[in-house]
Write a protein that binds this DNA or RNA. Structure first.
Lengths: 131, 131
DNA sequence: TTGACACAACGAAAGCGTTCGTAGTAACGT
DNA sequence: ACGTTACTACGAACGCTTTCGTTGTGTCAA
């Protein structure tokens, strides 16, 4: 039978930053996450630890305590969370219009010709798949 | 000469809800905004008032005090704010990949054939314009 | 003019997000 | 065994968001 998708809170800014690290690194210790974050901005070790503990309570991450240094892992795959976030913003700021969202995204930065082409290709395939 | 775009804070959830109302209604009194919100969820009049006052301090809205009932108006057009929000999410959750954002948005809900077609058309024109 | 009403202003509470300092504890080398 | 190091746990502070109650003040009708 199918797992009911857990009803997780939208991750906050700081939480999302950590999730991003976990997705790219895979299961990691606090130290590893801390070092990765520290490369971009000075942050206390315990700040990262606390964040991860809170995220574990919320169900955003799961932790393995078998080792002395606990190992944290995102409970949801990157794509799942991205879908939540995109859908949420779509509702709250774009009244559900995917086209407006796209316009907003494209006009917010320079987009390479390649990316445009990719996007188009993706749309074609998506269309085909959803037939 | 060109106005330097003001550096506004990202609107919070409640603020965005109010902005949406202001964009669709145009300049409005607190009462009008309150009634619109009240149709969806019970909210105190003063809550809306306070929110608008704070938003005015932040520069998200401007108010005209010439009338007894002040009139509030979004300082930035809808599209401008949408661009900020889309760009922000693009950076924070999609590592800048417009394609991933689109995938997230599309897979988060049912999208009609019409909307897909519209999206495609939009991409074509955007491409042409950006040449 | 007085009472009722519609409005703005203000203060404060409660909750959340973020940060950090301190304390406790297991592990490790000497 | 002892000190040092690498951790976790906890509490608390601070700021921001959201909500609401209270107060003050124009406005209008009787």
């Amino acid at each position: 039978m199918k797992q009911p998708t857990p009803d997780l809170p939208r991750p906050t800014d700081a939480e999302l930053e950590i999730l991003t690290i976990l997705w790219s690194r895979g299961p990691s210790t606090v130290r590893e996450v801390h070092e990765t974050i520290g490369a971009r901005k000075p942050t206390q070790y315990t700040t990262v630890l606390k964040l991860l503990q809170i995220m574990a309570e919320k169900g955003l991450v799961r932790r393995d305590e078998k080792q002395r240094a606990h190992i944290y892992e995102a409970t949801q795959p990157c794509e799942w969370t991205q879908r939540q976030l995109a859908g949420d913003l779509l509702d709250r700021a774009f009244s559900g219009s995917a086209k407006s969202l796209m316009l907003g995204a494209l006009s917010s930065r320079k987009v390479s010709r390649e990316e445009l082409a990719e996007l188009r290709k993706f749309l074609d395939e998506y269309d085909k798949g959803a037939r």
